[in-house]
Design a protein around this nucleic acid. Structure first.
Length: 423
RNA sequence: GUGGGUGUAGCUCAGUUGGUUAGAGUACCGGUCUGUGGAACCGGUUGUCGAGGGUUCGAGUCCCUUCACCCACCCCA
């Protein structure tokens, strides 16, 4: 094979595209039901945007970005995540002037230089929702409600919501201090990576899965015990709201996120029916990011969902019905004038919204019959010289196995009125 | 980045202790068949046996290297 697809990329083939589109339809429809509006941002951004928003000590920025210089010597990066771009566009296009809260969503593709495995690619699709301009816990609750609504519209079950609060600039420093003190005390028992994390990004130590670290973490100071009164109240109100809304959750004091811009609420929804790559969706509050990127103080909440993993669950559970439009009518002909006429008649029938294909090689009835049956096409139209004489064509119903001589209009009516393969 | 598994036709797979020109099914194309049912029969195309090197008179088979895919770790969605 001379050319092959790049590692970690995927072709979506005929037969697979329609489930994707159907999934996107669900995402758009559900988002609209919550008042979210779609935003489309460029695939590329300046590299600094991600360094400043996601954080330069995160794995994504430090080793997973597709970055390059363009011919104008500009530093450019293929988007590794969506929130940074949305915030940039929100500021650059003065969406700050819209009445708050501003609710946006995106369906986009992103790039991360990671080792591919099940449900994870280097080029991947994400849906994301972002809500700007309110620090009310009701926004957190509604965003989580949207997340559940989306997943359930896809027919998903076995969902687990994990919830935590990681505080704000007025309470996190103190917590961080205690955490670092604790980690320093137990430094010798931590794994080599966590020894580094303890200095650079101590919160990340909390979700290390290594046994040695887990043992140490048994006695670790817990974020939710160190929240300031405002954060604490915010977190409690959110939990009350979720309870009232009937959204089941587990508080997990070890839950943290991989991006630096989060504060207060963080959450993750996973599915027990996935293997190791079980996280379907994750997000949280980022009240300081807009300001960090040069905008006015603007509290915000959001989450992102990986669509490959969602597709895997949907397909395994067979939980969505996909309808791919397929051809209604195949036209058999005998070449020459009958082929020319077939092309012309096909277009007349298409005007009525019917999906028509013509035997472009004029190989006669037998071959067309086989072709139509092989493709599962329900109707076959025969256009030969006999038919052309009196403009009465032979329409075969391949399911009922009968045929009749009809005018063009009668053919259109017959196909439109049939229940198979609707328009 | 680390570890394990797998690579033979578009797809599913045979291929003996190393032995001639690498096979089957399926798919695809053509014919029987220039106006009627998914068939049947006949014929045809497709492989650098993942790639490179080594051992050998001889390698799909043994050895080394490498690449890709799958799975797990890491990380993330």
């Amino acid at each position: 094979m001379k050319y092959t697809r790049l590692i970690g990329t995927k072709d979506i083939l005929p037969g697979e595209t329609f489930p994707w589109i159907a999934l996107q339809n669900i995402l758009r429809d559900t988002s609209a039901r919550f008042g979210y509006r779609e935003i489309i941002t460029p695939l590329i951004e300046t590299t600094n945007l991600f360094i400043h928003s996601v954080g330069d000590v995160t794995d994504i920025v430090s080793k997973e970005m597709y970055s390059f210089k363009d011919k104008g010597e500009r530093d450019i990066t293929l988007k590794p995540e969506g929130t940074s771009s949305v915030v940039r566009a929100y500021l650059e296009n003065h969406l700050t002037d819209l009445s708050k809260p501003v609710k946006l969503y995106y369906i986009d593709r992103f790039f991360r230089y990671e080792k591919p495995q099940k449900g994870r690619y280097r080029e991947f699709y994400q849906y994301g929702a972002e809500c700007f301009g309110s620090d009310s816990p009701a926004v957190d609750a509604e965003v989580i409600q949207l997340a559940f609504h989306l997943l359930m519209s896809m027919g998903m079950k076995d969902l687990i919501l994990q919830l935590n609060s990681i505080g704000c600039p007025s309470c996190r420093p103190q917590y961080r201090e205690q955490l670092v003190a604790f980690l320093t005390l137990h430094e010798k028992d931590l794994c080599s990576e966590c020894k580094l994390r303890a200095v650079k990004n101590p919160l990340r130590v909390l979700d290390c899965k290594k046994e040695c670290c887990q043992a140490v973490l048994a006695g670790v100071p817990i974020t939710t015990n160190h929240l300031c009164p405002d954060c604490s109240q915010h977190f409690n109100t959110l939990q009350d709201l979720l309870t009232v809304l009937g959204l089941p959750f587990q508080c997990n004091s070890r839950l943290v996120r991989g991006f630096d811009y989060y504060n207060r609420t963080v959450f993750e929804i996973s599915s027990t029916s996935l293997g190791s790559q079980s996280a379907l969706l994750g997000g949280g509050r980022y009240d300081y990011l807009v300001e960090m990127l040069g905008g006015p103080p603007t509290p915000a909440v959001g989450f992102a969902m990986g669509l490959e993993r969602a597709m895997m669950i949907i397909q395994e559970a067979n939980s969505m019905d996909f309808f791919e439009p397929s051809t209604h009518l195949w036209i058999a002909n005998f070449g020459g004038i009958t082929l020319t006429e077939s092309l012309s008649i096909a277009n007349q029938i298409r005007q009525a919204g019917i999906r028509v294909e013509v035997d472009l090689e004029g190989k006669g009835i037998k071959k067309s019959l086989e072709a139509a049956l092989k493709r599962g096409i329900p109707y076959l139209l025969i256009i030969g010289e006999d038919e052309l004489k009196n403009r009465l064509f032979t329409l075969k119903d391949l399911q009922k196995k009968d045929q009749q001589s009809l005018t063009l209009q009668e053919i259109i009516d017959t196909i439109r009125n049939s229940q198979t393969n609707p328009l």
